[in-house]
């Protein structure tokens, strides 16, 4: 097989890169680099662990994914597959250490994800970006894990319904229901927490 230039590798999609990695394991580094920031952020958002612990979890995720590369089903998106492994690893890590909630900055800045979440909930953004991020984070942290993770995937990780279904291993219909309930739970939690959102009257 002729050597592939780093530039070419960067242009390859994930699924092609998996095939190439199975032929040349050195290329796994490229896949890991692609997902390192996204998965680290995802772990922090759904787990309440410290950054150092999140890094350990991520390392385990990468090793597990590498060992299971032959199991990857090309009918799925690679990102869904590795997000699923990450979620499972977070759950397994939680069971192992019984992590207590810690103060971790889930959302550094209110980006388009937060804006979309609030807009879907008919919430006006009466706050500046940083304050808004803190408030959303406060509500998310207090929410039930099953609702929190679906909101994180939809709005902060910008995943489609199909991707969320593949990550959580739940049928599409269940994802839609879960998301609706999560939005209701978010509104309710915001009220309970006394978070300063300006709710738009229907």
């Amino acid at each position: 097989m002729p050597p592939i230039s780093p530039k070419d590798l960067l242009q390859k999609n994930d699924e092609d890169l998996v095939k190439l990695t199975l032929e040349n394991q050195e290329l796994y580094l490229y896949l890991m680099r692609r997902y390192e920031p996204k998965l680290l952020r995802y772990i922090l958002r759904i787990s309440n662990v410290s950054e150092a612990e999140a890094e350990d979890v991520l390392q385990d995720v990468f090793i597990k994914a590498f060992q299971h590369l032959n199991e990857f089903d090309p009918d799925l998106k690679f990102s869904s597959w590795i997000y699923r492994i990450t979620r499972n690893q977070v759950i397994s890590n939680y069971r192992k250490i019984k992590a207590r909630p810690q103060t971790v900055e889930l959302i550094e800045e209110a980006g388009t994800g937060v804006e979309k979440l609030l807009s879907d909930l008919d919430i006006e953004e009466a706050l500046n970006n940083h304050e808004l991020a803190l408030e959303v984070e406060k509500v998310l942290t207090a929410m039930d894990q099953k609702y929190k993770e679906v909101l994180v995937l939809k709005y902060l990780e910008d995943k489609s319904y199909q991707e969320i279904s593949d990550i959580l291993k739940k049928p599409l219909g269940t994802v839609a229901t879960l998301l609706n309930r999560a939005k209701q739970a978010f509104k309710k939690q915001a009220t309970v927490q006394g978070v300063n959102f300006a709710l738009v009257e229907a």
């Binding site: 394991q25 580094l29 991520l58 990468f62 060992q67 032959n70």
Partner: peptide
């Protein structure tokens, strides 16, 4: 980086895909 650390660990422990 974490990727580099993981890659080094994979090599060191001679981990291969199943």
């Amino acid at each position: 980086t974490i990727s580099e650390k993981t890659f080094a660990a994979i090599k060191e422990q001679k981990i291969t895909p199943k």
